[in-house]
Design a protein around this nucleic acid. Structure first.
Lengths: 344, 344
DNA sequence: TTGTAGGCGTTATCAG
DNA sequence: CTGATAACGCCTACAA
């Protein structure tokens, strides 16, 4: 039925092993036979069987991708298509394939990962998120599976290859930008508290306040997820304080969109009444109203480097642990303005 | 190194084939030996090797997913995470894995698909989009690979299993809703003209106009992609007509978001000056300003059914061709209002 | 009910 | 430079 290496071998009057070598483009085969074999392959319409190769090789040329729980609204974040685009790019040239984790709940996803790892379906794994006490990460580490995480591991970051932004600095700079504009009452609107990226950005925000000599107020820190039902409450509370903030540092663009709309509903204008700076600089930030000032974290690059380094790690077992920091830049649009003292 | 079926066999004092049968839960093995073998598996930490199984079986339990070109902004559409969520759900229970097509350009993606099909890496394929003259679809058909498309195939739809909405009807109903509100000057803002879904929705729009006795005007049809640089131009032109439309049927929520912002920039209010109804009802439509009236097309279900049917097709070779229509419903929010004659 | 043996399509190790 | 031959880990007749 399917044409195999043997058929090609017969057709070209050589041994199967020779055909195999031609496929691998071994330098120890004469150009003449190579040509002969290649012709036979063409004529028969031969295509190597990856599965058989994998079995013999103990290498699948497949990389597993682990997304956060799809039950989570975070799944809808445009961050993911974009990292995947980067990963896909890096992976395509080197002939690797991508396999996606499946399942809705955390438990299901965990099982899925165990399955694809134990079943030897993948050579390595990329974790597309990083949060505190992640079972999957612990598992991968225990099993000594090649993997890289996008984001900073919660613990033992120096033992795990990861690709990240300097989120502390990014957040500090974003906050400093607002300070430069004259704002003194700046609030922080974070996402899921378990995500390391949230923690880091919060720390950067803190640092900026501190070095500017501004007070760090607990009531200025909000961690609701604005995309959830009723998530607007915390936002409303924040702006009903006796001394409401005049500027917000928002965890990411999708959340910023939610914030933008809550503000509009409350009759507050951006950047007129409140300035906003957010993160990620996805498509959304351009087409929002007003277009968002956002920290571009080079999502594509995050994915690209993660994949590139994972492949290196797979192909070279004693590749050292690495920490790769992708640069960021503040993209100024129209969601920030100078602080204006309220006209009494 | 790795523990195989043989190791388990020795440990349990049975033949490898017996172990194999236990894995498959063959009814022709006594409960007693089953238990014995299972204990041995546990003790040794055995996990079946999927690759080896695939080779022997000629079945990989993997489904390939083909996304549109990631060079395309369409890639950022929240439609995709959501279909994938549905697919993932359907696939997880039945122990199938998902493989993603890689590559940026169309040519790269085509190559990728050929690779994964010829390399026997997948048992079947789901096409996550449908457009006119798609090389990939033609290829899959020619090679007789089990596949299903999400959306309606351009040609020979009766020969290809597909999962779709009745987009013609959906668009007609959406348009009729605007007509009921008193609108007579209704424009259509479509996405990529090559996508079948765009064509169908345009047809539905046309039908609604026709049966309401309203004129179908060419200058009311716009097909720019609003997410592109300069895509707002067509929009502006549309609204600068001598008789500008008072309502818009917009291809999908993401585009609607862009339209919303272009309108705001032009100083037009929604739904005050212009009413908008769009499609897909993704998260975005809830958090946009105003929240969008949108046709819910049950994206999750589209993915779920596609996967379910593909698996049936894979496991039962003479499964008939099917056309599955997922129901839709108009979700009314705040982007539509009654037509108000302009105060002279 | 269970064991034996051959095969799935490649690659790798030896010879030559 | 090329050819046998034995794996890779599992499945499935066919036997027993």
């Amino acid at each position: 039925m399917t044409v195999t290496i043997k058929d090609v071998a017969k057709r070209a009057n050589v041994a199967p092993s020779t055909v195999s070598r031609v496929i691998a483009d071994s330098p120890r085969i004469s150009e003449k036979t190579k040509k002969k074999v290649r012709e036979a392959m063409k004529e028969l319409g031969y295509h190597p069987n990856f599965i058989a190769r994998s079995l013999a090789n103990k290498s699948t040329q497949v990389i597993g991708l682990v997304m956060p729980s799809s039950a989570d609204k975070a799944f809808q974040n445009p961050f993911f298509p974009e990292v995947i685009r980067g990963i896909s790019k890096a992976v395509h040239d080197r002939q690797y394939a991508l396999q996606l984790s499946t399942g809705e709940t955390e438990a299901e996803i965990y099982d899925g990962v165990v399955h694809m790892v134990q079943g030897k379906r993948v050579d390595g794994v990329i974790l597309l998120y990083s949060r505190a006490n992640d079972k999957i990460m612990a598992y991968l580490q225990k099993e000594d599976v090649p993997f890289v995480v996008i984001g900073k591991p919660h613990k033992k970051a120096e033992e795990i290859t990861h690709v990240d932004n300097d989120n502390v600095r990014a957040a500090r700079e974003a906050t400093e930008y607002l300070i430069e504009l004259g704002h003194e009452r700046i609030a922080f609107v974070g996402g899921n508290v378990n995500l390391i990226v949230t923690m880091d950005r919060l720390r950067g925000y803190e640092k900026a306040l501190k070095s500017a000599g501004l007070a760090y107020r607990k009531d200025y820190i909000v961690h609701e997820e604005f995309l959830k039902e009723g998530g607007q409450e915390a936002m409303k509370e924040l702006l009903s304080l006796a001394e409401p903030p005049t500027a917000l540092v928002v965890a990411d663009d999708l959340m910023a969109l939610g914030v933008l709309n809550t503000l509009a509903e409350m009759g507050l204008s951006v950047p007129g009444d409140v300035s906003i700076v957010s993160f990620n600089n996805v498509l959304l930030s351009e087409i929002s109203r007003p277009p968002l000032t956002s920290v571009d974290i080079n999502i594509f690059q995050l994915g690209f480097e993660a994949a590139r380094n994972l492949i290196q790690q797979i192909e070279n077992p004693n590749e050292p642990i690495k920490r790769i920091i992708i640069p960021h830049t503040l993209v100024k649009r129209f969601s920030c303005d100078y602080y204006k003292a309220p006209s009494q």
